[in-house]
Amino acid sequence: MTEIKTIIFDLGAVLIDWNPHYLYETIFEQEAERHHFFQTVCTSDWNEEQDGGRSLHEATELLVTQFPHYETAIRAFYGRYPEMLRGPIAGTVDILRELKESGNYGLYALTNWSAETFPVAQEQFDFLTWFDGIVVSGIEKDRKPFATFYHKLLRRYALNPAECLFIDDNLRNVKAAEELGIRSIHFTEPAALRSQLIQYDVLPE
């Protein structure tokens, strides 16, 4: 099997604790209300359009027009965006630090993130400077799980997919990477990730 030379990380829910519920727990007291809002108004499909390059203004006004009675809650999604970022996922950041300090691997990030909100994360999380390169979907106007987005990273940094290991919390994105010949780990929590990296001989036991 080809030696792993490059580790590619997803960011949200792998290294950064991002969750809209952190904000909306302060807006809707009942869990059922939050569930309804995310299923019918600020849906994951709607959010992914911003990850793919749609402007926050366009996205917000679209929903306000469709759901005027939710206007305040809709505008909070990006108006109070920093409240969705709770902090780093410490165990994964520790792993990233170990990989960086080892000097054995190229380290890259491939993230679905709006170009307009990504600077908020860059300002808050110093470890984003540890990467040799970060490809942001909102900037590229492309996103996971589309093969074209993975290819942007591979071409830009002259990476061989057979030498890469990809880590993402979204199984859909993991399967897409595997279809391109990239070994992948479905992230669930830091301890499991560490065990899997040991199995790949990326980290020492």
Rank of each mutant, 00 (worst) to 15 (best):
F187E: 00
N160T: 11
T2S: 14
R54V: 13
T6Y: 10
E33K: 12
A192S: 09
G53A: 05
E101F: 07
D169I: 00
I7C: 03
I198S: 07
E189S: 06
H151F: 09
E71S: 09
F131C: 05
V135R: 00
W18F: 14
P82Q: 10
G52I: 05
A158M: 14
Y105E: 05
I95H: 02
A90S: 13
F131Y: 09
H21N: 14
T92L: 05
T26I: 04
T60Q: 08
Q124F: 04
Y105G: 07
A76T: 07
S55K: 10
R183T: 08
I134E: 05
E163Y: 03
S184L: 02
T40S: 12
I198F: 03
A191M: 10
N160P: 02
G52R: 15
Q39P: 04
N104P: 04
F166G: 01
P88W: 01
K5H: 13
H36G: 07
V136C: 06
I198G: 09
A13C: 10
V93K: 04
L56V: 13
L107K: 03
A76K: 12
H69V: 11
I27Y: 04
I8H: 02
H21T: 14
H186G: 02
L180N: 03
E31D: 13
S55R: 12
F67I: 09
Q199D: 11
I27P: 02
H57R: 13
I198Y: 06
R34P: 08
R155D: 13
R54F: 10
A192K: 15
V120G: 04
I167Q: 00
P20K: 05
Y157G: 05
W18I: 12
E179V: 01
T129Q: 14
R34L: 07
D126V: 11
Q39T: 11
T26Q: 13
A176Y: 00
H186A: 11
T129D: 11
H21F: 09
Y81E: 11
E61L: 08
E48S: 13
D132N: 11
E98Y: 00
